[in-house]
Design a binder for these strands. Structure first.
Length: 419
RNA sequence: CGGGAAGUAGCGCAGCUGGCUAGCGCGCAUCGUUCGGGACGAUGAGGUCGGGGGUUCAAAUCCCCCCUUCCCGACCA
């Protein structure tokens, strides 16, 4: 992609009102734009990151045997009355009447909808287990949206729902999702702390939260100063908390919830008539689990964890581009032909390449490159050109390397230039 | 929903104890010079001072109401 023909509106100054680092950088790097409080547009760079995260999620969910669907955002309120959640979730539910006077709402989550769907098609234990998932926009009327896309009124979630004939099946699916989540976050470049948690408005028995430690976290985990052990905050241990591994003291650190999985049981299937006929000929409610990831929030979490004072440092797996080429003198034919050559070669080898061909000063290109945080950088400038070299820079490690013209793509392809 | 802060050009801000044609930086446009860490000069475009009402000879500036945004708290996946 040629930057001059693309849309990456970077900002030099911190937009007023943006306090959290991830909020500042997501605006400055041109990832997102606020329409109104808690409602954001995704710009090309932000959308690329979103798509890469979604791709990882899809691969791992599919590998775990889940099938992708897309449920509606628009729901009739009656279905929410059947489970009583029109009451328990009324504070976050955006409701209105359509022109026919029908009471509608925008889906804050989808247990009711998916259960209604499964109810219609699943009649027998032979059709179980089944796990469906979607990546979709959720709407929650948050009293207080916070930190940009961290807590928004409209946000993107991956939500999966498993249906089983018995508790054993649920346990297996739950464990499968638990492992899939670990892979997803690890592949995204995030270190998570998994803690047992309260099921809240979802209901059900067991649940686990996947937390990333971050200053802007609205929750907390405990961390051992000795061995590095991490775990959930247990109220019973709030006053004196020895580490279960090394007995040293634990301290509480703020953490951001990016995933939450629940063993729901039969709350929704029973309320909505999600029944099947078991092997013994008897009708039983399906046993459900649900599994959520805050996909858009992941972007903020990634920035919180991977940045420095100059900008974002995207992990390779989620970066909007793999390589950025910086031709410093766009008027110089040797510079530009070299830039175009690397652009072609790297693209043909499967890299996503951004080339900053704007007629801007070197300083601005460097600063913008640091800001948007593409992992690898090729700098083509007079300084090294005369001796037949260009500069490679690793944004993550800060390492730079001067290499000959012909070593560039080989080094990147072989992964030789890794931190 | 309680407490605090703030709304002036696309962005960041100054001006506000009432007083001249509303200013600065960045960005933007044209021209010239630059070209390895947010270059320089010249010229220029761009404003319902969040909205409404009031006080006054005169309101960005004072008073009242409303709207919006951000932060802390409560609430929440």
């Amino acid at each position: 992609m040629y930057w001059s023909k693309y849309f990456i509106p970077t900002l030099k100054e911190v937009p007023s009102g943006a306090e959290a680092v991830s909020h500042q950088l997501s605006l400055r790097a041109g990832l997102v734009n606020m329409l109104t409080s808690g409602v954001y547009s995704y710009l090309p760079l932000g959308l690329r990151v979103l798509n890469r995260i979604e791709q990882i999620i899809r691969e791992e969910m599919n590998a775990a045997g889940a099938h992708e669907v897309l449920l509606p955002c628009l729901h009739p309120v009656e279905i929410w009355e059947k489970t009583g959640r029109v009451e328990t979730m009324k504070d976050v539910m955006i409701q209105f009447k359509d022109q026919k006077g029908r009471r509608m709402c925008l889906g804050p989550t989808h247990e009711e909808i998916i259960t209604d769907l499964a109810r219609q098609y699943v009649q027998s234990y032979r059709q179980l287990p089944v796990t469906l998932y979607q990546i979709q926009t959720k709407f929650r009327d948050e009293m207080r949206p916070r930190f940009g896309i961290v807590r928004a009124c409209e946000f993107i979630m991956k939500d999966a729902y498993s249906f089983d004939k018995d508790a054993d099946g649920l346990k297996k699916n739950y464990d499968l999702m638990y492992e899939a989540y670990k892979k997803i976050f690890s592949r995204c470049g995030l270190e998570v702390t998994i803690v047992e948690a309260d099921s809240g408005a979802m209901g059900g028995s067991l649940s686990h939260e996947f937390m990333v430690s971050s200053d802007i976290g609205e929750d907390a985990v405990v961390c051992c100063e000795g061995c590095g052990f991490r775990g959930g905050v247990n109220d019973a241990l709030d006053n004196s908390r020895p580490c279960p591994q090394c007995r040293k003291s634990l301290k509480k650190i703020p953490a951001l919830e990016i995933g939450h999985i629940f063993q729901l049981g039969t709350k929704y299937s029973a309320a909505l008539g999600g029944l099947f006929v078991d092997e013994d000929g008897k009708q039983k409610p399906m046993i459900m689990g649900c599994y959520g990831i805050g996909v858009s929030r992941l972007i903020a979490a990634l920035i919180e964890v991977h940045h420095d004072d100059k900008g974002i440092k995207w992990p390779e797996q989620v970066a909007p581009f793999n390589v950025e080429i910086l031709p410093l003198q766009i008027g110089d034919e040797q510079t530009m032909s070299l830039a175009r050559r690397y652009y072609q070669e790297l693209q043909s080898q499967g890299f996503e390449v951004l080339i900053d061909d704007r007629d801007e000063s070197a300083g601005r290109k460097f600063n913008d490159a640091d800001l948007i945080g593409i992992p690898y950088r090729i700098v083509i400038g007079k300084r090294n050109l005369q001796t037949g070299h260009v500069e490679l820079k690793n944004r993550l490690s800060g390492e730079t390397k001067i290499v000959g013209f012909d070593e560039v793509t080989g080094d990147l392809v072989k992964g030789a230039f890794h931190a």
